[in-house]
Design a protein around this nucleic acid. Structure first.
Length: 552
RNA sequence: UGCCUGAUAGUAUAAUGGUAGUACGACGGUUUUUGGUACCGUUUGUCUAGGUUCGAAUCCUGGUCGGGCAACCA
């Protein structure tokens, strides 16, 4: 049995609430994305937290789109978000939208006006900003703050009716212009936007602000634990204030530190820039930290969930080493991915003592990690093979367990060969390695008595299929591009994508499917790209194998 | 020179007044028909100065450092 993992601080809160019988011992969380971009690995942390918490405590989770700003939101994003959450392996109890509550929230605003706790302000954005003061100086009230309830009611109704242009008026809560918390200095509740909304169409020309929609939506749904990131801590008093004044279900907000990861950026705004300015192919470019990018890169839902489990949940700022994400995908794929052979940087190996034109069928396990090897597949062998250029050295150093004149290696699932000579072209590049094979050393029937230290992979020249292989490296060359001087894009890694036009792969790989990971032995984990076709196979490298070999 | 937050190995995260532990990374070793995997080992830590206490990572006070807050964004 595995030991019980210690609780994170939110789980502790939930357990305390449960023990105290709060909310009738019910747990209801929500994942509240704004549909203005694609989900990234940071959202995955939030998704795993919210859905994971509900699952652990027999509760449920709503998927609620925070769609209160129609100028930035699109259906395309709604669809991608739903697909990503599902792909990660989670099921929401209800698919909801803040816009479903526009009528209710409007009535909440009317209630506050009637209580003398909200007013219509005709000031411009700049005036309001100025009147709010600064963190060290209190704000100052304006003439509109003392409008009568009746006048406020009428003006707000006129705002709703479309009588005023964008920016002409706003509805503000009447709280405390001198509060040390800027968010309590009469925050905006509604603004005028004559904009088409992806769900409510042209029904509305006024839209509630986040602070007057999020908590109210939580309360309407009877969310018990509303989990968000640290930057909303100063909003909490306002979250509670609205709920208290409106006498709604007392949802509670809890904040955790968002995920930051080395060598990437984690802001939708920056990711959008990379897409729009063409630094990457699209939101699902395999170099992107988006869920769709990771999926296309070959990451599995299980590996991402495991990652989110391992990084933990706390309130301190953090910077997770991307190597942990890589560990999680290797760990998963090592157990599940079928082994195949592919030569990415080929040179020809010629077996001088193997009959020209002869073919033998060799076989190899699909996965040595599985108890039964997970079955096996066959592949042809001949006297001309492709091997990796780096597996031969003209002047091999000590402990180089590969080929060099006089050295022997095992060809994986085939024979032991001894290197006799090599051929160079006019430029001095090695083009062929000539070897002799040991007939007694065939895999499974080895009676040669010879033990070699190295084993290399290979593909038979006349039988090999061709494929394009895309090798990815980190998107940025510095750990924290957002924290460097100047524009973050100056720190993009120019070598984040290396395309190999022609690699040679074993015939079996022609059956590869999108969404399935393969280990190219000794090279890493790869998966078929979504744009691959039977005529032109394209593989993406998910991650390399850990490399213990250090060149001396 | 306001308010809110936070500070434990390189990076994360436990220890909830009683032996500072775990994972990833790094380094070394064993095994190996993947220089992978697996297994074993080594390494490195309580921001600081006081106080309370038999005993402090934990409680108190001061300081230092990091993050957030003045969008008609969420």
């Amino acid at each position: 049995m595995s030991e019980e993992r210690s609780l994170n601080f939110i789980e502790e809160i939930v357990e305390e609430d449960l023990a105290a019988g709060k909310n009738n011992s019910r747990v209801l969380t929500r994942f509240p994305p704004e549909p203005n971009g694609y989900l990234h690995i940071g959202h995955a942390k939030s998704i795993c937290l919210n859905f994971g918490l509900a699952k652990k405590y027999n509760g449920q989770t709503n998927l609620r789109f925070d769609d209160t700003n129609p100028t930035k939101e699109e259906v395309e994003y709604v669809d991608s978000i739903k697909a990503d959450v599902k792909w990660l392996g989670f099921e929401w109890a209800n698919e909801l939208y803040a816009s479903d509550y526009f009528d209710t929230i409007y009535n909440f605003a009317v209630t506050l006006i009637k209580k003398g706790l909200a007013y219509v302000d005709d000031s411009t954005a700049e005036e309001i900003s100025t009147q709010k003061g600064t963190p060290t100086e209190p704000g100052t009230p304006n003439q509109y703050r003392d409008r009568s309830v009746e006048e406020n009611l009428q003006l707000f109704a006129e705002m709703k009716a479309g009588k005023y242009p964008d920016g002409a008026k706003v509805l503000r809560a009447k709280i405390d212009l001198a509060s040390p918390n800027m968010h309590m200095r009469d925050p905006l509740m509604y603004r005028i936007k004559h904009t088409h909304h992806h769900r409510t169409g042209n029904d509305w020309c006024i839209y509630p602000m986040y602070d007057f929609a999020h908590g109210e939506s939580d309360a309407i749904e009877h969310i018990t634990h509303s989990i968000c990131t640290l930057e909303f801590i100063p909003h909490r008093p306002l979250y509670d204030w609205f709920i208290e004044q409106l006498e709604l279900f007392p949802s509670k907000q809890y904040e955790f530190a968002r995920l930051n990861m080395t060598y990437t950026v984690m802001s939708k705004r920056k990711l959008l820039q990379l897409v729009e300015e063409g630094f990457v192919e699209d939101w699902d470019d395999p170099r992107m930290p988006t869920i769709s990018g990771l999926r296309r890169r070959g990451y599995t839902p299980a590996s991402i969930r495991e990652f989110c489990e391992r990084i933990g949940v706390a309130r301190r700022e953090n910077m997770i080493d991307v190597s942990l994400l890589e560990f999680c995908i290797r760990e998963d794929l090592n157990k599940t991915a079928w082994r195949r052979m592919a030569v990415l940087d080929p040179i020809k190996l010629v077996l001088t003592n193997y009959p020209d034109g002869q073919t033998e069928i060799m076989s190899g396990e699909n996965n040595p990690e599985a108890e039964d090897g997970d079955g096996s597949r066959e592949f042809p062998f001949s006297n001309e093979l492709w091997i990796e250029r780096e597996d031969f050295m003209e002047e091999p150093p000590k402990k180089f367990f590969r080929l060099g004149v006089g050295l022997m290696v095992r060809l994986k699932n085939a024979y032991i060969v001894r290197c006799d000579s090599f051929v160079k072209d006019a430029d001095g590049n090695v083009t062929e390695v000539h070897c002799s094979y040991l007939p007694e050393s065939k895999s499974g029937n080895d009676t040669s008595g010879i033990n070699v230290k190295g084993t290399i992979h290979w593909v038979s020249v006349p039988h090999a299929k061709e494929a394009e292989v895309r090798l990815y490296d980190r998107l940025f060359q510095v750990e924290d591009p957002s924290n460097e001087d100047g524009d973050f894009k100056e720190y993009l890694n120019p070598n984040s994508l290396h395309i190999i036009k022609t690699a040679y792969i074993e015939p079996e790989l022609a059956k590869a499917e999108v969404g399935v990971g393969y280990q190219f032995m000794r090279k890493g984990y790869f998966t078929l790209d979504k744009h691959s076709t039977p005529e032109k196979l394209v593989f993406n490298r998910t991650v390399t194998l850990k490399d213990g070999w250090v060149k001396k």
